[in-house]
Computed example of a mutant assay.
Amino acid sequence: MGGFIQSSTMRKFAMALSGLFLVFFLLQHFIINLTSVTSPDTFNELSHFMGTNPLVQVLLQPVLIFGVIFHFAMGFILEAKNKKARNVNYVKYNGGANASWMSRNMIYSGIVILAFLGLHFYDFWVPEMVHKYIQSHPEDATRYYAETIAKFESPVRTGIYVVAFIFLMLHLLHGFSSSFQSIGWNNKYSKALKGFTQAYAIIIPLGFIFIAVYHYLNH
């Protein structure tokens, strides 16, 4: 593990793979949440399946939690290593001349996203665990929609979600495309892939913002 952490190439490769995994999960999460706008019954069905299916709960959920922790841990390690390298190799580091604003501030957008994930877990995952394993309520496949839209009654909470997804957009605009570079993707499809990643980085966060604002306005 020590050798892994010391290898710049391996750190970036691991960071990229964990990021791509989380991007895939984000799309799945968005598709399910979008059904809360189009069909509450479908949203309840999908949420109930995700909340009760043994494969999801026993295997996929722990993998997801590990992926989140690993990605952010590697991000902090990379930032610390890069900062140390800049202090050693450069008398004066002009970040703006070498990289975009988004790439230079990935750590800050990441911190905002991490804080938001803490809030999101508090809003949804913790109550779900309490409901199922502490209070031991019977299964209710119709409760998910009402519980979800209740979170967007407050303009403050809705505003926090909007700001968090703006930072997610900024994070993805650099991180998604650079992940493919880190794993060695460099061929004739690279330009098209970058266009796809840029579109994804804008559309998906805006979609989440739309869902939050839609539920707030419809209370």
Rank of each mutant, 00 (worst) to 15 (best):
Q28I: 14
G184C: 13
Q6C: 01
K12T: 08
L55T: 02
Q198T: 14
R157C: 00
P54G: 06
S36R: 00
V162Q: 01
S7P: 15
S178K: 09
L193D: 04
V63W: 12
H171W: 01
K151W: 05
V163A: 07
F25C: 04
F66G: 07
T197D: 05
G195W: 09
F167I: 09
L34I: 03
A164F: 01
V213P: 03
L59H: 04
M102S: 11
A146E: 12
Y189C: 12
K83W: 13
M1G: 07
V23M: 14
L217I: 02
Q198F: 14
S136M: 11
I204A: 02
H29E: 06
T197I: 05
Q198H: 14
R11S: 11
M15Q: 04
Y108M: 14
Q181R: 14
F13L: 12
L27R: 07
V130Y: 02
L78H: 13
T42P: 01
F49R: 08
P54Q: 04
Q135I: 00
Y122G: 13
V37R: 05
W125V: 08
M129L: 14
W101C: 06
Y144V: 00
Y108C: 10
L168E: 01
H48K: 08
W125I: 05
E79N: 15
E147H: 10
F4C: 08
A14D: 02
G110I: 11
I69L: 15
N105T: 15
G2S: 11
I77V: 15
A73M: 15
T142Y: 11
G118C: 12
F70M: 12
F72R: 02
Y189E: 15
D140A: 10
A164I: 00
F43C: 02
I209L: 08
F72P: 01
A85G: 15
V163I: 11
E79Q: 15
V37H: 03
K194G: 09
G3K: 13
P138Y: 04
G184T: 14
I203L: 11
F116C: 08
F76P: 01
M74F: 13
G3A: 09
D41G: 07
V88P: 03
A14T: 10
H120M: 13
G110K: 04
Y122P: 07
A212V: 07
T42L: 10
V37Q: 06
R104A: 15
Q57L: 12
G118T: 14
F72C: 08
G118H: 11
L27M: 09
V88N: 10
G96H: 07
G19S: 11
K188E: 13
L168A: 05
Y122M: 13
F13P: 03
Y93D: 13
V58S: 06
T158Q: 04
Y161D: 00
F72D: 06
L173S: 02
V88A: 14
M106D: 02
S136Y: 06
N82F: 14
G96D: 08
N98D: 10
T35H: 06
Q57R: 13
Y90N: 10
L170Y: 03
F196P: 01
E79P: 04
K92G: 02
P205I: 08
Q28A: 15
G75V: 05
G67K: 05
K191F: 09
S47Y: 03
K132F: 00
A85P: 13
T35A: 08
L173E: 02
Y216C: 00
